[in-house]
Simulated scan of single mutants.
Amino acid sequence: MKNIMGFLLMLVLFSSCKEKEETTMDTADNQMEQEEMAMESDEMPNIEIMPISHATFVMNWNDKVIYLDPVGGASAFEGMPPADMILITHTHGDHMAPATLKAVMNDNAMLFAPQAVADKLGADFDTTVLNNGDSEAVDGITVNAVAMYNITKGRLNNHPEGVGNGYVIESDGYRVYVSGDTEGTPEMRSLENIDKAFVCMNLPYTMDVEQAADAVIEFAPVEVIPYHYRGQNGLSDIDKFKSLVNQGNEDIEVTFMNWYPERG
């Protein structure tokens, strides 16, 4: 009888310990899951992309508003929040328009551009010059100027090396790449840890969808957004671009946006 009572007591104690252990493990698992979700929430900024047309867009990054290559006149930016930063990639008319720039500038906005743009804009604009390899940090956002240029024979004069900028914009480890007018240069292919990439593709000015996809597969951003894809023969085949990218790396998210609203 004593043996039976002892066995039952041991069984009760064992069950109690096991239940407590499972409860502790469940609590620990839930805590870890909550911590991971909190980390992901901390790492993911609140970014809203507002395409204007072709190469022009507005990016609201945690309430800091960045204008990229503003062209199209004041009416193109009606209803947009005022700029904190304006980035211009190069001097071509679909990227730099002094009249539009005057319309969207305000006393608080900082203007970043390569030397060639600053030279053309002249003294009418207070331009912070960034050339390839330069960087500037403002209010927790770092702007890095990266090379953009043509590398294919027959296109070299379109965008000579060292004249224009692409940009990597970074805050709290989150990195956004804006290609400007370029081909799949070594500098593009060697980019690291890009979360969101805006990549051009139009002939004969930049590159075709095959070269663009090949470069994107190599630097492997988390997400790529084709932009600046209207060329001499109309719009590039962005569906083909998406297919090529995902054949090479199915983990890259390809996102389409309405860059040509005039087409409906």
Rank of each mutant, 00 (worst) to 15 (best):
E183Y: 09
I66E: 03
Q34N: 14
M96P: 02
T255S: 08
Y260Q: 04
D251M: 06
R155P: 04
T24K: 14
V146C: 05
N132A: 08
V104I: 06
G72Y: 08
Y167A: 13
D124G: 15
M85I: 15
P221A: 09
T255Y: 00
G140I: 04
V146H: 05
E210W: 08
C200I: 13
L8C: 07
F57H: 15
E262P: 02
D139Y: 00
N249R: 09
G264R: 06
A38V: 01
V117F: 08
Y67M: 00
M257D: 07
S53F: 12
P186W: 01
A103N: 14
T27P: 01
A116T: 13
I225L: 12
L111P: 04
L156W: 05
T206N: 07
V129R: 14
T128M: 00
K242H: 01
P45D: 00
S190K: 05
M25R: 14
P204R: 04
L68C: 12
V168K: 02
M59T: 11
P221R: 00
N193L: 04
M148K: 12
D239A: 00
L111N: 01
R189I: 06
M10H: 05
S16E: 02
V199P: 10
I49T: 04
K240Y: 09
K120I: 06
Q34W: 09
F112M: 13
I4C: 02
V138E: 07
T128Y: 11
G173M: 08
L111Q: 05
D214I: 04
R263Y: 13
E161Y: 14
L130M: 09
A55Y: 10
N165M: 13
G93M: 07
E48I: 09
T152N: 13
H54F: 15
V222N: 08
E183Q: 15
S179D: 14
L101T: 07
L11K: 06
T23D: 13
A97G: 13
D195T: 07
A103P: 07
I225V: 13
S135W: 10
I49N: 02
Q31R: 11
E170R: 01
E262C: 04
A145G: 14
V224H: 05
A113Y: 00
A83E: 12
L111V: 02
I4D: 13
A197V: 00
E170Y: 02
N249M: 00
A109N: 07
A76H: 04
V71F: 01
A109I: 02
G184N: 15
S75M: 14
G133L: 12
M44S: 03
Q211F: 00
E192K: 11
D195Q: 08
M80K: 15
G180D: 14
I88D: 12
E250H: 06
L87S: 10
N60E: 08
L87C: 15
N3C: 10
